[in-house]
């Protein structure tokens, strides 16, 4: 029998997070180079620190349930000193934990969507950046929208199937990853309105936002971690 690919548990989440942190570390120098064009050139340094926290927490995940683990991970990431990225990522990860019940041990597609929607809401609570402002929101907003659309689709397909479910979690994560990547790429066409880059105005056209790129890498890592399990 095929493994159940409609639910996500602690082991799988751990695998996904480890893959995401590996990818972030691998790309950190590129992120710093991208940031050096209009920022102060240390986004990769911060992302490396965030990745180290994710790595350390995921690798040493003890008895904590999903909710407690993600809540603590969000706090730990927020505790990283690294400009805007740390509080943003900390808020994002902490936001994922909010819809979970204390005892939750499994995440099904609708819950996964609620988690990412909650993370997006939390982010909206701390930044005024909107789509098109050349920030990480340009990766996050389309990612969550695409995941949502894919979830609706997957649920419908599964209802129609008789024997076993398809890989709906994988499809949702892949949809999020691809939308985040497209969204990050699209920031090349935007003029920066937030952060240090905004002072360079039109000169930022043609360069992607490092924050959008790093968040899209996180989505890619989650999807790759799931796909590889």
């Amino acid at each position: 029998m095929l493994a159940d690919k409609t639910k996500l548990d602690k082991t799988l989440l751990k695998t996904m997070l480890l893959e995401a942190s590996r990818l972030l570390r691998e790309k950190s120098d590129e992120l710093s180079e991208l940031d050096a064009r209009f920022g102060d050139g240390d986004h990769g340094v911060t992302i490396k620190k965030i990745a180290a926290v994710i790595d350390q927490r995921a690798a040493g995940w003890g008895d904590a349930g999903l909710k407690a683990f993600l809540t603590e991970l969000g706090d730990a990431v927020m505790g990283v000193s690294g400009g805007a990225a740390a509080p943003l990522w900390g808020t994002f990860i902490g936001g994922l934990a909010l819809p979970l019940e204390d005892e939750a041990t499994e995440i099904d597609p609708p819950l996964l969507i609620r988690m990412f929607s909650s993370a997006l809401e939390e982010m909206r609570g701390i930044t005024d950046a909107k789509a098109g402002d050349k920030t990480l929101m340009d990766a996050l907003i389309p990612a969550v929208e695409s995941m949502n659309a894919e979830c609706v689709n997957a649920e419908r397909v599964n209802e129609e199937r008789v024997n076993g479910a398809e890989d709906s979690i994988g499809k949702i994560l892949a949809a999020g990853s691809s939308a985040a990547e497209k969204g990050a790429k699209a920031t090349e066409n935007f003029v920066a309105r937030f952060g240090r880059a905004k002072n360079s105005k039109e000169r930022t056209l043609g360069t992607a936002d490092p924050g959008a790129v790093s968040l899209s890498l996180f989505f890619r890592g989650l999807a790759a971690g799931w796909a590889g399990h």
């Binding site: 102060d40 240390d42 340094v45 911060t46 620190k49 706090d75 927020m78 505790g79 990283v80 000193s81 690294g82 400009g83 805007a84 740390a86 509080p87």
Partner: peptide
């Protein structure tokens, strides 16, 4: 905070 970076809210 670290070099050119804000410290944590905590």
């Amino acid at each position: 905070g670290d070099i050119f970076a804000a410290p944590s809210p905590q």
